[in-house]
């Protein structure tokens, strides 16, 4: 195993862990409100690694939903990970063994997907594992802290940490936009369309998860028609 690559991943996992700590903390509070204990919340966060998905899970458990409803809701809310996994599956060298792929699949979150996509050329999953160890620790710790001590984190600090996740996204999308005019337009169009979908009547009724899927399919699909990528060997 490439230790240096693992450590590089761990370093890039630090801002993710900070953001996760803040987000998971609020999840923990919600879990505590329906009387889930620290161990149950830890199990949920470790297993699901999904923010909106876990909020839904808490609501479903709290309302004693049936199995079909749980599967259907979880499926719809987390469907965007399907697209992300499709994209990542093509970023791996053909020789990467299956067990490494199965482990990588566990860590397909918005943020870990983001930094893994930003790697030049093929992705060595070791990098993602390094980032995952640090960030999953932050995610689980945040959840448990939220359950056992809902009011230890000052609001202002939590609010500042919350933004770290978006800062990371900017660090991933801005550099390619600076290098290529097409990427700059792509990013700008995506943001503008997202703004419209978040505010316009009718479309803003669509859940956030579905808005992301619809816009991604439409815009990335159009971009692939307009500017097919050149083969990179």
């Amino acid at each position: 195993m490439d230790v240096r690559l693992f450590l590089k991943g761990s370093r890039d996992g630090i801002p993710i862990a900070m953001g996760y700590l803040a987000v998971a903390f609020t999840l923990g509070i919600a879990a505590g409100n329906i009387n889930m204990d620290a161990l149950q919340s830890f199990f949920m966060s470790f297993g699901m690694l999904a923010s909106a998905g876990e909020y839904a899970a808490i609501l479903l458990i709290g309302s004693a939903a049936g199995v079909i409803e749980m599967i259907a809701t979880t499926f719809i809310i987390n469907l965007r990970y399907f697209l992300m996994s499709c994209s990542l599956s093509q970023k791996l060298e053909p020789g990467v063994p299956m067990w490494k792929r199965l482990l990588l699949a566990w860590f397909v979150t918005d943020e870990l997907f983001g930094i893994s996509s930003a790697v030049e050329g093929y992705l060595d999953p070791v990098y993602t594992y390094g980032a995952a160890v640090v960030s999953v620790a932050g995610w689980c710790l945040g959840t448990v802290l939220g359950v056992v001590a809902g009011d230890v984190l000052p609001v202002r600090l939590a609010s500042a940490m919350n933004v770290a996740l978006y800062g990371m996204f900017l660090a991933i999308i801005i550099p390619p936009a600076r290098k290529s005019r097409f990427m700059a337009i792509l990013v700008a169009v995506s943001m503008a369309a997202s703004f419209v979908f978040a505010n316009a009547p009718v479309v803003s009724e669509i859940s956030e998860g579905f808005r992301i899927i619809i816009l991604t399919v439409l815009i990335a699909g159009a971009a692939a028609f307009i500017r097919p990528i050149e083969e990179e060997g």
Partner: peptide
């Protein structure tokens, strides 16, 4: 080629869509 290009663009579009306008309401 189209599928490859599509999957190449997916991360940038997804992350841009998730960042804006959500970043505006992420802080207090």
């Amino acid at each position: 080629k189209w599928v490859r290009s599509f999957l190449h663009y997916v991360p940038y579009v997804t992350l841009a869509v998730m960042t804006f306008p959500a970043i505006l309401t992420a802080a207090s």
